[in-house]
Design a protein around this nucleic acid. Structure first.
Lengths: 364, 364
DNA sequence: CAAATTAACTGTAACGTTTCAGATTGTTTT
DNA sequence: AAAACAATCTGAAACGTTACAGTTAATTTG
């Protein structure tokens, strides 16, 4: 029974002869319904099961049968029905990106999304966005996805050192990857930017320029990278003997108006900083406005180092020392990690960190 | 048979007694599977069909039965299984946002996404992102969605006056809404920013400041809003007798380096413009860099008007006259429109336009 | 009071897929 | 030649939902 099958048994009365959907009158003949396994089964004269198994290259299907099935499938442009697969297997082929609307404005989110999409484009996965107000209930989207099984994996950002979402997802054994690290003794997939190193190097650069009184505009203190940036900051200060000018409760996510006002007051102090490190590009814009409103000249009376996720600060003030956080790359890494995680790869193999690279002094 | 039903007929041997899923050993008892119609049917003693119909408030179900079903459903936290619904009805409860990775960087995409999500959050719809390189094959994502039926509606942006995607979607009768208008005699849902009016007003403002030689940095000429901005521009010039300083082939989406270089050359001409209108915030950043590299002072030798989708230009140069395009609002409008479209509302009732509002001179 | 009508409920089938437990060959072993 | 095996193929059932065509019992009609 090697190659005898060639369409000998046509029709297959049992399952019904390919039910000849009534051709709609407007589209003469092109209105062919979407092909299913049944279509291929009919065309090849095989059973639906055989076709299904052939397409997943199961070992109990003959080599030439597989070939034949694949050929017809390709010819028809067959694509498995997602709802069918999902209903039967529970596999959604969906990655959920949970993001907070407080996310940084300057292109952060879009770059992340594009990075993820880049990787997902080559797979069966779709990307579903689940924005929410982080303030209100950060657990809500995660719980929803968990309860409804509406994704195979989750990417979360803005993680805290002790992150409830990470705890919950881990407890449930649900695949996830985070943008940012945690500090709760839980092993999980992540990608992070090395903010400690960034701030450390930033301070060293300021000191190399002779600055000694440094201020750090950090992220909100509940987020993990607040601590990383503090550690880098303190390490650099300790090594060099430079001193810190404290910033009070202002953070990179305070309103731009508040940041400006703060910066202006700060620079009007009797002992203002001569170097500022900023963790966020948009905050830096307000920072400049404030410092200049106080009459200070960037590059002269003080220097400024900033991280940014889109390359725009140096167009505004070439004097700013900038580091680009490649968020798109982060997106790519996270997408690869979550897919691997879904495929069962151990989380400790899915951790990566980007290191700061300093932009050349001025753009073209 | 009014209120006699109260759990009299329990069990229902026919369909099987709620098959008591083997409780997993790790989770003592809380590991209740996700409730389905069957669960509710069992608990109420009703048939699955009855429960289904009761939940959709069908007219042939008794009022008290409905109440009872709703109560139990709420109690269990019942959520219809999306795969089941989708398989049976073809309804995906998904809105696809097709966006091009060439989309403006400065927060445009994220604001759009957040706006859409805001509206979708109150509905059963999920938001699926389908980014793609617009250059390569703009039709691909649309065709994919059409072929696989993977969404109930599509939102597209960056439309052209004669847009193939609009033509295809209309031909297939598929619900969609566009960010931007077309000009091909097809009635469809859209939201647009009134770029004609923006540019017109921009020019008038420049002229009010005594400027007479105006340059327009327009979007790429294949996009609809290129034409709108040109119309507004030319109308203002015609009315006032001001003259245009042409910009050649530079557009708001040329690289920042190119824009800067162009601006610098332009301002070094023997007859440079004294007013510039920019359609994009990020381009404006480069524009400033170029004009200042040529030694010109903003607000003195020339004035600059720019549109932006995030409020940042005035932090950089308070002198710039800015208009904020509220992309988040656009997202909200588009989401509402696409849902209405799916519900069968006529497209001509789903068209809206945002008008420019001028930011107050300087921010806080 | 039989027949028709109405109100309330229900089982079956189907959407497209995969898993399971066979079935049908031909071939090898004993 | 009977029995066992291997290689291929297969139908039935199930996932959760809804449309359809009933069924049942009570009520109205003639």
């Amino acid at each position: 029974m090697r190659q005898t099958l060639m369409a000998v048994r046509i029709g297959k009365q049992a399952t019904g002869t390919m039910d000849e959907k009534s051709i709609t009158p407007n589209h003469p003949s092109k209105s062919q319904e979407r092909p299913t396994l049944k279509t291929i089964a009919f065309m090849t004269g095989l059973g639906i099961t055989t076709v299904s198994r052939a397409l997943k290259d199961a070992p109990d299907i003959g080599a030439d049968t597989k070939e034949r099935v694949r050929l017809v499938a390709r010819q028809l442009g067959y694509q498995p029905n997602r709802a069918g697969v999902r209903l039967r297997t529970g596999k959604t082929n969906v990655i959920a990106l949970v993001l907070s609307i407080e996310e940084e404005l300057m292109g952060f989110t879009s770059q992340m999304v594009f990075g993820i999409s880049e990787v997902l484009a080559g797979t069966q996965y779709h990307l579903v966005l689940t924005p929410h107000s982080h303030q209100r209930d950060p657990m809500m989207p995660v719980r929803y996805i968990l309860d409804t099984g509406s994704a195979d994996g989750i990417i979360i950002s803005r993680v805290a050192p002790e992150d409830q979402r990470v705890a919950l997802l881990t407890e449930r054994g649900f695949p996830f990857a985070t943008h940012g690290r945690t500090d709760m003794g839980i092993m999980h997939a992540f990608h992070d930017f090395d903010n400690e190193s960034y701030v450390y190097q930033a301070v060293r650069k300021l000191i190399a320029r002779g600055r000694t009184r440094i201020a750090l505009l950090p992220p909100p203190s509940n987020l993990s990278y607040y601590h990383h940036s503090r550690i880098g900051f303190e390490r650099a200060l300790a090594e060099t003997g430079a001193s810190e000018v404290p910033v009070g409760r202002v953070t990179s996510e305070s309103s731009l108006g508040m940041i400006k006002e703060f910066a202006e007051n700060l620079m009007r102090n009797h002992a203002p900083p001569d170097g500022i490190v900023s963790i966020s590009g948009s905050a830096t814009v307000a920072l400049i406005a404030g410092t200049e409103a106080a009459g200070k000249v960037l590059g002269k009376e003080f220097d400024l180092v900033s991280k940014q996720s889109a390359d725009f600060l140096n167009w505004i003030r070439p004097e700013i020392l900038t580091v680009n956080e490649d968020v798109r790359h982060a997106g790519r890494e996270l997408a690869k990690a979550i897919i691997a995680r879904i495929d069962g790869v151990a989380p400790d193999l899915l951790q990566s960190i980007s290191h700061p690279t300093w932009a050349s002094a001025a753009p073209v």
